[in-house]
Computed example of a mutant assay.
Amino acid sequence: MSSDETLFDRPGEGRLVHADKDHPPVPRAKVGVLLANLGTPDGTDYRSMRRYLSEFLSDRRVVDYSPWLWQPLLQLVILTKRPFSSGEAYRSIWNTENDESPLLTITREQTRKIAEALEMDYGDRIVVDFCMRYGNPSTGGALRRLQAQGCERILFFPLYPQYASPTTATANDHAFRTLMTMKWQPAFRTAPAYFDQPAYIDALAASVKESFAQADRRPDVLVASYHGVPERYLHEGDPYHCQCQKTTRLLKERLGWSDSDIVTTFQSQFGPEKWVGPATVDHVAELARQGYKDIAVISPAFAADCVETLEEIQQQIKESFLEAGGEGFTYVPCLNDRDDHIQALLGVMRNELSGWV
Rank of each mutant, 00 (worst) to 15 (best):
residue 203 A to E: 12
residue 131 C to Q: 09
residue 140 G to Q: 13
residue 200 Y to N: 00
residue 146 L to D: 01
residue 210 E to Q: 15
residue 178 T to F: 08
residue 211 S to F: 04
residue 163 Y to D: 07
residue 132 M to H: 04
residue 194 Y to P: 02
residue 140 G to M: 12
residue 156 F to D: 06
residue 210 E to D: 13
residue 198 P to M: 05
residue 187 A to V: 12
residue 170 T to K: 05
residue 141 G to Y: 00
residue 145 R to S: 09
residue 146 L to G: 03
residue 205 A to T: 11
residue 154 I to L: 09
residue 140 G to L: 11
residue 186 P to V: 11
residue 150 G to L: 07
residue 130 F to W: 13
residue 147 Q to Y: 05
residue 135 G to W: 06
residue 137 P to Q: 04
residue 204 L to E: 01
residue 185 Q to K: 15
residue 147 Q to F: 00
residue 174 H to E: 09
residue 192 P to T: 09
residue 197 Q to P: 03
residue 201 I to N: 03
residue 143 L to C: 06
residue 212 F to K: 02
residue 125 R to F: 00
residue 164 A to Q: 07
residue 125 R to T: 06
residue 206 A to N: 11
residue 172 N to R: 05
residue 180 M to E: 13
residue 174 H to Q: 12
residue 166 P to C: 08
residue 186 P to N: 07
residue 206 A to C: 05
residue 201 I to L: 04
residue 152 E to K: 15
residue 202 D to T: 14
residue 148 A to C: 03
residue 185 Q to L: 15
residue 131 C to M: 10
residue 133 R to E: 03
residue 200 Y to W: 06
residue 142 A to M: 07
residue 198 P to R: 01
residue 202 D to N: 14
residue 200 Y to F: 13
residue 151 C to R: 08
residue 198 P to K: 03
residue 204 L to N: 06
residue 181 T to W: 00
residue 128 V to M: 02
residue 143 L to E: 00
residue 207 S to E: 11
residue 205 A to P: 00
residue 130 F to M: 09
residue 160 Y to V: 05
residue 139 T to A: 05
residue 148 A to W: 04
residue 154 I to N: 01
residue 156 F to C: 07
residue 200 Y to S: 02
residue 131 C to T: 11
residue 168 T to V: 13
residue 188 F to T: 15
residue 161 P to E: 06
residue 144 R to S: 09
residue 210 E to N: 11
residue 142 A to W: 02
residue 198 P to L: 09
residue 195 F to T: 08
residue 135 G to H: 07
residue 208 V to P: 01
residue 167 T to C: 01
residue 131 C to H: 05
residue 130 F to V: 08
residue 166 P to T: 11
residue 191 A to Y: 04
residue 214 Q to W: 05
residue 168 T to A: 03
residue 149 Q to E: 11
residue 194 Y to R: 11
residue 147 Q to M: 14
residue 192 P to H: 05
residue 195 F to P: 03
residue 140 G to W: 12
residue 162 Q to W: 03
residue 198 P to H: 01
residue 211 S to H: 13
residue 178 T to L: 14
residue 197 Q to L: 12
residue 171 A to E: 01
residue 186 P to M: 04
residue 142 A to E: 02
residue 190 T to K: 14
residue 155 L to H: 05
residue 150 G to D: 04
residue 173 D to T: 06
residue 180 M to P: 01
residue 213 A to M: 04
residue 174 H to D: 08
residue 192 P to A: 08
residue 207 S to H: 10
residue 204 L to T: 07
residue 161 P to N: 03
residue 196 D to A: 14
residue 182 M to W: 04
residue 147 Q to P: 02
residue 192 P to S: 07
residue 141 G to S: 10
residue 128 V to E: 02
residue 173 D to C: 02
residue 147 Q to H: 08
residue 137 P to R: 10
residue 187 A to L: 10
residue 165 S to K: 13
residue 179 L to P: 14
residue 164 A to Y: 00
residue 188 F to Y: 15
residue 157 F to D: 00
residue 204 L to H: 09
residue 146 L to F: 06
residue 205 A to H: 03
residue 174 H to P: 02
residue 201 I to R: 01
residue 213 A to T: 07
residue 197 Q to K: 15
residue 172 N to E: 10
residue 154 I to W: 05
residue 185 Q to D: 03
residue 189 R to T: 10
residue 141 G to T: 09
residue 199 A to M: 07
residue 178 T to C: 15
residue 193 A to C: 13
residue 153 R to P: 08
residue 209 K to Q: 13
residue 205 A to Q: 00
residue 167 T to S: 08
residue 190 T to M: 14
residue 139 T to V: 14
residue 189 R to A: 14
residue 191 A to G: 07
